[in-house]
Amino acid sequence: MKEKLKDITARALLAIDKADNNKDLAAVKVEILGKSGELTGILRNMKDLSPEDRPLAGKLVNEARVEIERAFDAKFKYLHDLELAKKLEEEKIDITIEGSDKKLGGLHPLTQMQNDVIDFFTSLGFAVLDSPEIETDYYNFEALNVPANHPARDMQDTFYVTDSILLRTQTSAGQIRYMENKKPPLKMINIGRVFRSDDVDATHSPVFHQIEGLVVDKHITMCDLKGILAKFAQRFFGEKTQIRFRPSYFPFTEPSVEVDASCPYCGGKGCRVCKGTGWIEILGAGIVNRNVLATCDINPDEFTGFAFGIGLDRITTICHGINDMRLEFENDIRFLKQFN
């Protein structure tokens, strides 16, 4: 029987090896292991053996069965893998074709920048204010220490609606509204549209956007102002950005400064963007004028504060290298898509 088993096993393995598809392999399996298969037949004949021979014979048959089954399984797997590989190969597609689905839209670059600015300041405890775009002369000028006929009004050509109502020329107008209702300690930014009667060209627009910032508390210093603006510049123009203060004049701050950032394009070496100076002007700032605090019933001997005004459009055009402000308002879809 041992010889017979050996023979069956050898033939079975040969047949398994020869079978090159599932169907043939299955037929071989039936032939050997099926109900009337050879190996099954031997098992069936076991009852004819003497009881003392049976255990050994059983063991031998079982070993042969396990060996053959293992070979079947391996061959089945091999054939399956082969077939799968073929199928996968057939299903291969051109992966260089552009992806397509329902299209996403995108936010305007100014909004994206505005969101980043808001994120920066709110993380520092700044509240974000809303204030009217059509303002009174009082909030836009007078309460900001710019009385009627003040030469500073020449600096900002104003669109008027009536003698005393105008399109706000600066988001600073929101300072007063905020301080009328809220007393120190306070930190606030006011972002929005402002209007000046500038003719439209590559660097001017009668509609643009400002971010006004205001901090009022005890012991606020110019070093604090410099620190927060340096962090701001580093956030938006890169970690290595330096800032410098230059004396300037705004009626609502004293001392007042213009703030330059080292040119993000050339790192301060001088290039076309910074006109060779290594610096680009990014904002105006200063210590809140005592008269402004007093106007809002905040004691200027007790509290000091700083304020700054950043051009959102300017920051956006610098960061993206946009060379013409008109593009912001044309809504050419090719422009808008670039930022999304």
């Binding site: 808001i118 300041f121 709110t122 993380s123 520092l124 405890g125 700044f126 509240a127 974000v128 204010l129 809303d130 300690p185 306070l186 930190k187 901090v215 508390d217 005890k218 012991h219 606020i220 210093t221 110019m222 070093c223 604090d224 410099k226 620190g227 927060i228 340096a230 962090k231 410098r244 203060f245 230059r246 004396p247 400064v257």
Partner: peptide, 22 residues
Amino acid sequence: YDSLTEDFIKDAQPTVGGMTVR
């Protein structure tokens, strides 16, 4: 102005910030 150092509102009291509902 270059002699001003860069402090970070070190004496200011904490405030709650954030956007309005609108």
